[in-house]
């Protein structure tokens, strides 16, 4: 469905993505994990057209997205749930959601209503709060608004940028459960996360990104069990230090 080849992008002279290649098949849940500054957000922004590509190609269902303006990429069926949620604070929850359906034809009122209902079924709490300003919601509820808003466009590919950011662990669990549910219902998802363990637990496949390039690719289960990934992103040693409390443990952590 999505095939990225040798993608290069950045800001001004700063090159952030140095030849990224990856693909997402229809129905898959693919996650990209990596540390801060690895280029994960830039990658999603480039796919969404918010950052211009400087080289390479992004093929989405046969269309080259590098040639499509940001505002018409949603119309091609590729929606982004941005980092930090970016809900419109002084608009009501329902207005936020309706904005998500912006690219759908105005005649299709019944269809938009139906999608709205499906979002409310997915997140019942949003129905209760639909008249409330989105800015007054909790972080987790705002994340639901952001996901619901992207769903309103009925995209074939849903891209999420750090949905766990700044949320309480219990809320994160809920959000990931929802994502797993969407995946089970056949939605194609590209998930960028720093919370590698949670992301890999629900994903089919994963990519490890570092300093603007893909370092590793594989089935999510394999990555979860991979020693390098565990050490770098899952904090395996850290945990075992806590469990073992060996005399040399402090120095071992510092050398990591």
């Amino acid at each position: 469905m999505l095939r990225i080849r040798n993608l290069q992008a950045g800001y001004g002279k700063l090159r952030v993505l140095r030849g990224v290649s990856l693909h997402v098949r229809a129905g898959e849940l693919v996650t990209i994990i990596g540390a801060n500054g690895a280029g994960k957000t830039t990658l999603l922004h480039t796919v969404a057209g918010l950052v211009p590509a400087q080289g390479g190609e992004i093929e989405f269902d046969g269309t080259d997205l590098t040639r499509v303006a940001a505002y018409s990429i949603v119309g091609h069926g590729c929606a982004l749930v941005p980092e930090g949620r970016q809900v419109f604070a002084v608009m009501s929850v329902e207005e936020n959601l309706l904005l998500g359906a912006y690219t759908r034809p105005t005649r299709d009122r019944a269809g938009v209503r139906e999608t709205l209902e499906s979002v409310y079924r997915l997140f019942p709490v949003l129905r209760e709060r639909r008249r409330q300003y989105a800015g007054t919601l909790s972080g987790g509820e705002q994340q639901m608004v952001a996901i619901g808003r992207a769903r309103m466009a009925q995209p074939r590919l849903l891209m999420l940028d750090e949905p766990s950011m700044g949320l309480a662990p219990l809320v994160v669990k809920d959000i990931f459960k929802t994502l797993a549910g969407l995946h089970a219902a056949g939605v194609t998802i590209l998930l960028v996360e720093q919370n590698a363990r949670a992301a890999l637990a629900i994903a089919d496949r994963g990519y490890v990104m570092e300093t603007g390039a893909i370092l590793m690719e594989g089935a999510a289960r394999d990555l979860l069990n991979n020693n390098d990934v565990q050490r770098a992103y899952l904090g395996k040693d850290y945990q075992s230090i806590g469990e073992r409390t060996l005399p040399g443990a402090e120095t071992q952590r510092q050398t990591r």
Binding site: L50, Y71, P82, Q86, F88, V90, E95, Y102, T106, R149
Partner: peptide, 24 residues
Amino acid sequence: SRAGRALAAIHGNESAAQALGINT
């Protein structure tokens, strides 16, 4: 209207509005 919501979105956050498919 739909156009009014789009305008409010542009005022709120132009990039986010674009990401929703609004030709700002």
